[in-house]
Design a protein around this nucleic acid. Structure first.
Lengths: 186, 186
DNA sequence: CACTGATCTGACCGATCGGTCAGCCTCTGA
DNA sequence: TCAGAGGCTGACCGATCGGTCAGATCAGTG
């Protein structure tokens, strides 16, 4: 029964996911059609929609692991009372997240605002606000929040472009940048 | 002949431009239809296309002043032989540009890659590469280039979100951030 | 052999996109 | 008064979008 399962099923599913990742990364979510994905896989558009309920479901499954880790980071940050500790946890956690899921993050590009409107991603908006607050040392000063937001957005926007840089090197460079650039908790 | 020109012409033209700016900023270039713009102006879609040759022409006219200033900055950077001076000129010039044109920059969001494909904006790609190189102190080290790109992208991505911050405060905060975060020329 | 369920396809749907076009309305100058 | 030009509209175009559907194919089962 288990071994009797037709082989191409999971394989095609994964191929569609991989192809979608590449296409989304190249032209964004909105800029990629189901036909584009099907062409890259070598199947029909209907086959794509056989394996996934709709276009958004592809994105949701694609982002699931990253969102899970983001959730865990949010919990760890929320557990910190000391702003300096929270800033440290947020810094290291976010850099790890960005490096590890740079491929997934890259394909969102500037479509965050629209995607966050969709119910599947609604809670991410609040998480990112808490992350920014933690990076800013929970300060209300404009300059601290500006620094945090610029760095967060900058890393999210660019981390997918450093394919030739190793995880360790990228992690070290981003950590050094954040340590230098974020305003310290006074 | 000059005074005889029908009054609503230039006015409608400007209203379309202003409405397009607001819509592009809200939902991006691709996410805004000509119908959306027409609805916001209160005219027909055909009227929008009477005043502008096509959708891209709206964006081109919208970005023209910012691109002009960017070109001038590129010239000033190219004139600097000393990497440290070039970094300084790029830093201050880019911050000024970002603050002054934050509205225009904001509406490009993640659509840079696609828009840069279009002939009207083809040269901007090279300009931004020179700008990044200057910000990185013309260093070939990965960490320097990563810092420069993260900060450039982060500022471009977020500068439109600080509507409540004054030009002076935003300028000061971004300048301080860049001075702190960019790797110094050694 | 017949049958079943999973996989996949081609044709098709309504909606929306950017863009075109013929013609209407209004204002102006002779 | 009226011809004509500029400003603008509604109807329409082909293309493409996400998504649906009936049916073809095929491996496994009784």
């Amino acid at each position: 029964m288990l071994a009797a399962m037709a082989r191409p099923t999971q394989q095609t599913h994964d191929e569609i996911l991989a192809a979608a990742t590449r296409r989304f990364a190249a032209t964004g979510y909105r800029g990629t059609s189901l036909q584009d994905i099907a062409r890259e896989v070598g199947c029909s558009k209907a086959a794509v929609l056989y394996h996934f309920a709709n276009k958004e479901a592809i994105l949701t499954e694609l982002m699931a692991p990253a969102i899970e880790v983001l959730q865990a980071l949010d919990d760890r940050i929320a557990a910190q009372d000391d702003p300096a500790r929270a800033q440290q946890v947020a810094t290291e956690g976010f850099v790890d997240l960005a490096v590890r899921f740079r491929g997934e993050i890259a394909l969102l590009r500037g479509e965050f605002p629209e995607l966050l409107q969709q119910p599947d991603f609604a809670h991410i908006h609040e998480i990112s606000e808490r992350l920014i607050a933690a990076l800013a040392g929970r300060s209300s000063r404009d300059s601290a929040r500006i620094c945090a937001l610029v760095l967060l957005a900058g890393i999210a926007e660019t981390c997918g472009q450093f394919a030739e840089v190793s995880d360790e090197d990228l992690r070290a460079a981003l950590l050094a940048l954040l340590r230098r650039a974020l305003e310290p908790v006074h």
